[in-house]
Design a protein around this nucleic acid. Structure first.
Length: 171
DNA sequence: AGACTAACGTAATCAATGT
DNA sequence: ACATTGATTACGTTAGTCT
């Protein structure tokens, strides 16, 4: 993606989160959990997060990246396989799909804060997201997801030219 | 300099919730 | 029933770390 255009006072890409560096013990533990279950639910992720002292959202991303890596190496850890195995073979119950994160409910006032920020910048960096997290009381990781979904579903009506923003939201 | 990989992006889809 | 929208998936890209 090519945001962060030229020098001429254009919008610069905001900084991303500082990259964490995993120590060997953390890598080993992650690896071990991955082998047991490459698709951990929120409960397992939380427990693992606590165990190795890494925030749960980082754990979730690590599993996403690691699945890609494994797949690239020819190893096939695919979700469907995992699910159907659980269904056709209920005895191997360990393969059953684990519960995901409970849906976060976002209030009207929180949404208005987020929408305002979105109209200023559709691609907030970590600093902006943390600030919004503070203002709204929502976890930063949920804010990041909110922006992803928003970009996908409300394409630029602040970017470039306002496409008559009042036409929206018939409430 | 190049390999590795956390962080981050899109697109598609599932699923909870409200109307 | 349907629309809206939060969460998860696959997969590609960007950029920091390490050898």
């Amino acid at each position: 993606m090519d945001l962060a255009k030229s020098s001429n006072g254009s919008l610069e890409r905001e900084a991303r989160r500082k990259r964490i560096v995993l120590n060997q013990h953390q890598k080993d533990t992650l690896q071990a959990w991955f082998e047991k279950n490459p698709y951990p639910g929120i409960a397992a992720r939380d427990q693992l997060a606590k165990e190795i002292g890494i925030p749960e959202p980082r754990i979730q991303v690590w599993f996403q990246n690691h699945r890609s890596r494994q797949r690239r190496l020819g190893l096939k850890c695919c979700f469907e396989e995992y699910q159907t195995q659980g269904q056709t073979n209920p005895q191997f119950g360990t393969q059953a799909k684990e519960a995901g994160r409970i849906r976060t409910s976002i209030t009207r006032s929180q949404i208005s804060i987020l929408v305002q920020a979105f109209e200023k910048n559709q691609f907030p960096g970590i600093a902006t997201r943390e600030e919004l997290a503070k203002q709204t009381g929502l976890p930063e990781s949920r804010i990041q997801i909110w922006f992803q979904n928003r970009r996908a579903r409300h394409p630029d009506w602040s970017r470039g030219g306002p496409v008559n923003s009042l036409a929206a939201c018939p409430s």
